[in-house]
Design a binder for these strands. Sequence first.
DNA 1: CAGTGGTCTAGACCACTTA
DNA 2: AAGTGGTCTAGACCACTGA
Lengths: 244, 244
Amino acid sequence: MNEPEQAPGFRPLYAQIKDLMLGRLASGHWRPGDLLPSEPKLATEFGVSQGTARKALDALADMHLLVRRQGKGTYVTAHTPDRALFHFFHLVRNDGAHQLPDSRVLGLREGQASPAEREHLDLPAGSSVIRIDRLRSLDGVPVLCERLVVSAEMFPGLADRDLEALPNTIYELYEREFHAPIASAVERISAIPADAEDARLLGLAPGSPLLQVDRVALGHDARPVEWRVSRCDSRNHHYLNELR
Amino acid sequence: MNEPEQAPGFRPLYAQIKDLMLGRLASGHWRPGDLLPSEPKLATEFGVSQGTARKALDALADMHLLVRRQGKGTYVTAHTPDRALFHFFHLVRNDGAHQLPDSRVLGLREGQASPAEREHLDLPAGSSVIRIDRLRSLDGVPVLCERLVVSAEMFPGLADRDLEALPNTIYELYEREFHAPIASAVERISAIPADAEDARLLGLAPGSPLLQVDRVALGHDARPVEWRVSRCDSRNHHYLNELR
DNA sequence: CAGTGGTCTAGACCACTTA
DNA sequence: AAGTGGTCTAGACCACTGA
């Protein structure tokens, strides 16, 4: 009889080291932008060879949680407009041009979480959330209206911010001011008819097809941080996905 | 003054070996399903250490061109319904269920390539193409109508096939019978209004929003093999994309 | 049991960055 | 010149597969 558990019962050393490092990222011991100790230092610190430490670091770099730069060192990934553009913004112009849209904040309010909001953000009953509505433009033309929802508890004071002070790439704000860096996301894309509000904001006829991107963004611990629903006029833009 | 060229002027050994292996895949020297020689054999054959050969193999496995199985060996990736489902079919039911649709072929015809078809498939003027129209159903409900376009030269005899004999996962056919395996793809997604034909096939009102997925599928040599446009009723299904 | 890929180590050297 | 990550090698051992 073998052991009843089907679990591997074996976890490579480098994977264990990777998990320890992940813990340091999730706990904030290592923060976005930080320079990590060098490979030899980490190796002796964790009691493994440099090659094993390297394999753990490479795995985290593959997940885009770390960035390695030859000659300089290994850094914790920080959100920049570039990262937002190439990693999290998949809407491109039909001719292929790739650029980040401007944002105009239309509203920022706190309120009781709806059941859908609680489910998407994994919040208990009675939680409150902060909702941000934005209209985003490419080449000066409004193409995208979106609602962002986050836990009010996780983002204290966000509801009292000046609308104008919110940065265009808001994940920078999450990570810099609320220590809630975004590590990954899941997007669900569908086609919906424009409602009256969407139509007005985007200058379309009600009922026009819109591309809806429903995104839950996750932290390093894989717990949801933000739920975002974007509705896009996709006559001149499309969502680009490369399958490798 | 440094050398005028900005090119790296340096390419790691394992990358060169990887390129050589890619050549064997692109040329058909290694074909889908084949078992590759063992690491030590490849290493001596290419005149490098086993570690370097391994790094090249790992890189190709990361691109999903090879599959490595401990205890068995390294295989060239072959298309299976599983691969189609998890790697190339991103439409899932709103409740999360993930399954491959049935296909009913509506038409299979050869004709002169339109300018758009020539551009998508990188064909010279005067080329002919084969077009396949399919209606695909999930849970017995038609949700997706699509047109596939391929070069007639690359797929000799395809136009004379029996409609019923085309497999549901057609990439298997491309690779098995025409030695044209699909290695990657680029998808462009937008929302469009249903035309009369789409509406009839999918049981919708004309003008209803449809999710359009425009895909160019590429071979190992990164040249286009198939252009496919799918239009989906996205009321009960959506396109799922995970950003890591 | 032999053969495969997977892990781990140790050490040498290379390319890049900064001072 | 010193320090970083990146490459390359060689060898030992482990986990998995199938005869």
